[in-house]
Design a protein around this nucleic acid. Sequence first.
DNA 1: GCCAACGTTGGC
DNA 2: GCCAACGTTGGC
Length: 156
Amino acid sequence: MAFWLFKSEPGCFSWQNLAESPGRTTAWDGVRNYQARNFMKAMRLGDQGFFYHSGNDPAIVGIVRVVREAYADHTALDPENPHFDPRATPEKPIWEMVDVQLEAAFPQPLRRRDLAAFPELADMELMRRGSRLSVQPVSPEAFAFICALAGGGGRP
DNA sequence: GCCAACGTTGGC
DNA sequence: GCCAACGTTGGC
């Protein structure tokens, strides 16, 4: 079992929607970065990940679970889609996505600036200055540590 | 809004 | 293959 972190801009993808309809499946599409894509390809059914909102006062707001492993991201083929990639073809879609479901919403969002105070989390990719990776691995230790901080919200 | 850091592109 | 220019991300 591996652990991950999914980054989303508030407004771009609604955590609210996800939180209000448990069991709803969401395709994590639109990722156009090779490193992030490769992490998604490495995801396995049942893997868990943090849902992170960037933007103003960025925070981890909960946990999602991978319910479908990587498959072609068809939004790359759609010229109307903001994430359209002219290089993508049905035979070679280039980009992939996974499906996730809400696992737990934290009672309170864990703000990045609060998390930054913990030396235990200093090695997280998220804490690296200038890090822009939108899908990233999280160590089991960091995952458990943050879940414990969240208190009751989630479990590793 | 600012700006540092990043990934990608393209000329050579 | 190098690297400068560019557009974008994301924390503040």
